Simulated scan of single mutants.
Amino acid sequence: MKTTPEHDQKIAKMTFASVYPHYIAKVERKGRSQAELDQVIEWLTGFGEKEKQALIEKKATFEVFFERAQLNPNAHLIKGVICGYRVEELETPLTQKVRYLDMLVDELAKGKKMEKILREE
Protein backbone atom coordinates (compact mmCIF):
# COMPACT_ATOMS: atom_id res chain seq x y z
CA MET A 1 0.00 0.00 0.00
CA LYS A 2 1.48 3.30 -1.05
CA THR A 3 1.62 6.39 1.08
CA THR A 4 2.64 9.80 -0.21
CA PRO A 5 6.22 11.01 0.30
CA GLU A 6 4.77 13.96 2.25
CA HIS A 7 2.92 11.58 4.59
CA ASP A 8 6.05 9.50 5.16
CA GLN A 9 8.15 12.62 5.80
CA LYS A 10 5.62 13.97 8.28
CA ILE A 11 5.71 10.72 10.24
CA ALA A 12 9.53 10.56 10.13
CA LYS A 13 9.85 14.06 11.60
CA MET A 14 7.25 13.63 14.36
CA THR A 15 8.81 13.19 17.78
CA PHE A 16 8.10 10.20 19.97
CA ALA A 17 7.90 12.62 22.92
CA SER A 18 4.99 14.44 21.29
CA VAL A 19 2.99 11.25 20.71
CA TYR A 20 3.76 9.25 23.87
CA PRO A 21 1.45 11.33 26.16
CA HIS A 22 -1.40 10.68 23.70
CA TYR A 23 -0.70 6.94 23.84
CA ILE A 24 -0.81 7.08 27.65
CA ALA A 25 -4.08 9.04 27.67
CA LYS A 26 -5.66 6.67 25.16
CA VAL A 27 -4.87 3.47 27.04
CA GLU A 28 -5.65 4.92 30.48
CA ARG A 29 -9.02 6.21 29.22
CA LYS A 30 -9.82 2.60 28.33
CA GLY A 31 -8.74 1.21 31.71
CA ARG A 32 -5.24 0.06 30.80
CA SER A 33 -2.04 1.23 32.46
CA GLN A 34 1.08 3.11 31.42
CA ALA A 35 3.07 0.05 32.57
CA GLU A 36 1.17 -2.08 30.04
CA LEU A 37 1.85 0.51 27.35
CA ASP A 38 5.55 0.50 28.22
CA GLN A 39 5.56 -3.31 28.05
CA VAL A 40 4.11 -3.15 24.54
CA ILE A 41 6.67 -0.53 23.46
CA GLU A 42 9.50 -2.61 24.89
CA TRP A 43 8.23 -5.73 23.09
CA LEU A 44 8.18 -3.92 19.74
CA THR A 45 11.37 -1.85 20.06
CA GLY A 46 13.52 -3.46 22.74
CA PHE A 47 13.65 -0.12 24.64
CA GLY A 48 13.61 -0.42 28.40
CA GLU A 49 12.54 2.48 30.60
CA LYS A 50 15.95 4.22 30.54
CA GLU A 51 16.30 4.11 26.75
CA LYS A 52 12.71 5.21 26.21
CA GLN A 53 13.09 8.10 28.65
CA ALA A 54 16.37 9.20 27.02
CA LEU A 55 14.67 9.29 23.61
CA ILE A 56 11.82 11.34 25.06
CA GLU A 57 14.24 13.81 26.67
CA LYS A 58 16.21 14.15 23.41
CA LYS A 59 12.94 14.70 21.53
CA ALA A 60 13.96 11.96 19.10
CA THR A 61 12.01 11.82 15.86
CA PHE A 62 10.33 8.57 14.90
CA GLU A 63 13.09 8.23 12.30
CA VAL A 64 15.76 8.19 15.04
CA PHE A 65 13.53 6.21 17.42
CA PHE A 66 13.16 3.32 14.99
CA GLU A 67 16.77 3.53 13.74
CA ARG A 68 17.84 2.73 17.31
CA ALA A 69 15.13 0.15 17.95
CA GLN A 70 15.68 -3.59 17.78
CA LEU A 71 12.39 -4.47 16.13
CA ASN A 72 10.83 -7.63 17.54
CA PRO A 73 11.21 -10.54 15.08
CA ASN A 74 7.47 -11.19 15.41
CA ALA A 75 6.50 -7.63 14.43
CA HIS A 76 5.55 -8.92 10.98
CA LEU A 77 2.65 -10.72 12.68
CA ILE A 78 1.00 -7.34 13.38
CA LYS A 79 -1.82 -7.06 10.89
CA GLY A 80 -4.87 -4.88 10.49
CA VAL A 81 -6.03 -1.43 9.48
CA ILE A 82 -4.90 1.68 11.33
CA CYS A 83 -5.47 5.26 10.19
CA GLY A 84 -6.91 3.92 6.94
CA TYR A 85 -3.83 1.84 6.08
CA ARG A 86 -3.40 -1.92 6.15
CA VAL A 87 -0.14 -2.12 8.13
CA GLU A 88 1.15 -5.32 6.56
CA GLU A 89 0.92 -3.74 3.08
CA LEU A 90 2.71 -0.46 3.81
CA GLU A 91 5.73 -0.09 1.52
CA THR A 92 7.72 2.50 3.47
CA PRO A 93 9.53 0.66 6.30
CA LEU A 94 9.52 3.57 8.77
CA THR A 95 5.85 4.33 8.22
CA GLN A 96 5.09 0.64 8.68
CA LYS A 97 6.99 0.53 12.00
CA VAL A 98 5.17 3.60 13.32
CA ARG A 99 1.85 2.08 12.30
CA TYR A 100 2.86 -1.19 14.02
CA LEU A 101 3.21 0.83 17.22
CA ASP A 102 -0.12 2.57 16.61
CA MET A 103 -1.76 -0.80 16.04
CA LEU A 104 -0.40 -2.23 19.29
CA VAL A 105 -1.57 0.82 21.24
CA ASP A 106 -5.01 0.42 19.66
CA GLU A 107 -5.17 -3.26 20.57
CA LEU A 108 -4.20 -2.44 24.16
CA ALA A 109 -6.86 0.28 24.36
CA LYS A 110 -9.47 -2.08 22.93
CA GLY A 111 -8.87 -4.52 25.79
CA LYS A 112 -7.07 -7.30 23.94
CA LYS A 113 -5.21 -9.75 26.13
CA MET A 114 -1.52 -8.99 26.50
CA GLU A 115 -0.56 -12.43 25.14
CA LYS A 116 -2.36 -11.64 21.90
CA ILE A 117 -0.91 -8.13 21.66
CA LEU A 118 2.60 -9.52 22.17
CA ARG A 119 1.95 -12.25 19.59
CA GLU A 120 2.66 -15.04 22.11
CA GLU A 121 -0.17 -17.33 21.04
Results as ranks from 00 to 15, higher is better:
residue 13 K to L: 12
residue 17 A to K: 15
residue 40 V to A: 05
residue 95 T to K: 01
residue 77 L to W: 04
residue 9 Q to A: 14
residue 31 G to A: 05
residue 96 Q to H: 08
residue 43 W to F: 13
residue 16 F to K: 03
residue 121 E to W: 10
residue 89 E to R: 12
residue 1 M to L: 14
residue 86 R to Y: 09
residue 50 K to P: 02
residue 76 H to Y: 06
residue 72 N to S: 08
residue 2 K to Y: 07
residue 84 G to P: 07
residue 15 T to F: 03
residue 58 K to C: 00
residue 104 L to Q: 01
residue 82 I to P: 06
residue 52 K to G: 08
residue 45 T to Q: 07
residue 98 V to Q: 05
residue 66 F to N: 08
residue 111 G to W: 00
residue 111 G to I: 00
residue 58 K to W: 04
residue 8 D to G: 06
residue 111 G to M: 08
residue 54 A to H: 11
residue 41 I to A: 02
residue 47 F to I: 01
residue 27 V to I: 07
residue 48 G to L: 10
residue 77 L to H: 04
residue 21 P to T: 12
residue 89 E to T: 12
residue 21 P to Q: 04
residue 74 N to W: 02
residue 85 Y to M: 10
residue 3 T to A: 11
residue 18 S to G: 15
residue 78 I to L: 11
residue 74 N to T: 08
residue 7 H to M: 13
residue 103 M to W: 00
residue 96 Q to V: 06
residue 43 W to R: 07
residue 77 L to A: 13
residue 83 C to V: 08
residue 116 K to P: 01
residue 46 G to F: 14
residue 21 P to E: 09
residue 62 F to R: 10
residue 85 Y to I: 00
residue 7 H to C: 10
residue 22 H to R: 14
residue 76 H to G: 09
residue 103 M to C: 09
residue 13 K to S: 13
residue 108 L to W: 05
residue 114 M to H: 06
residue 36 E to R: 07
residue 39 Q to P: 02
residue 65 F to T: 11
residue 109 A to W: 08
residue 73 P to A: 05
residue 39 Q to I: 01
residue 1 M to S: 13
residue 33 S to H: 08
residue 63 E to D: 04
residue 25 A to V: 05
residue 68 R to N: 14
residue 105 V to Y: 03
residue 84 G to F: 10
residue 120 E to R: 15
residue 111 G to H: 03
residue 84 G to N: 09
residue 102 D to R: 12
residue 62 F to G: 11
residue 40 V to C: 01
residue 52 K to L: 15
residue 17 A to H: 08
residue 20 Y to Q: 06
residue 80 G to Y: 05
residue 83 C to Q: 13
residue 90 L to N: 10
residue 76 H to L: 03
residue 64 V to I: 14
residue 46 G to Q: 13
residue 3 T to R: 12
residue 118 L to T: 03
residue 120 E to C: 04
residue 47 F to S: 00
